[in-house]
Amino acid sequence: MVQPLDYLPETPSQTAGPYVHIGCTPNFVGIHGIYAEDLALKPFPAEAPGERITVTGSVIDGTGTVLRDVLVETWQPGADGRFGPGAQGFCRMPSSLETGEWVLETVKPGAVGPNAPYIALWIVARGINIGLQTRMYFEGDDLSSDPLLTRLEHQNRIPTLVAKKTGDGTYRFDIRLQGEGETIFLDM
């Protein structure tokens, strides 16, 4: 016999369910008066330095249907590649109850170490048993030496991680949960 390795196993995930907004963005679903405002409506204050960008996106299931009950969270450094302070750089976006679109108004992140600039995303909804981690890179940036992208076996899937430029400071990023054009999801 040996001593037990008495580490603790991580608590199992469970789906966020159809009412995740009650807990995470209650004002968005009409529950007012508990919190003055929902958490992390904007990732940075208006005066934060850097290039202002707007990313519009949606999350699409395996049948091609846009999710209208999804919650997307983003986390990123500022334009200088540094994190924080506090919750700066964090944004929580419920998709529109009508169109399923979410809109991220932020500053373009700076590069961190050898990584090309990117924003980390975490996606939860009814039917998603464990939150999905992914990344959003930007069309027009040099992605050729990013440590994650360069080691991908299926290089033809890289576009699923790249927001498309649609105009001056505007991008489009659709996340496909399953099937044709399925977004790369990460385990890291």
Binding site: P85, G86, G89, N115, G127, L186
Partner: peptide, 30 residues
Amino acid sequence: GYKSSVARSPSRALISGPASPTELSGPTFG
């Protein structure tokens, strides 16, 4: 058995790789 998961589950393997400072850091709340 949980029907909503059928169309909302990725069918390809998750990709592992080195986490960067972005995944290792996070927002803090006071």
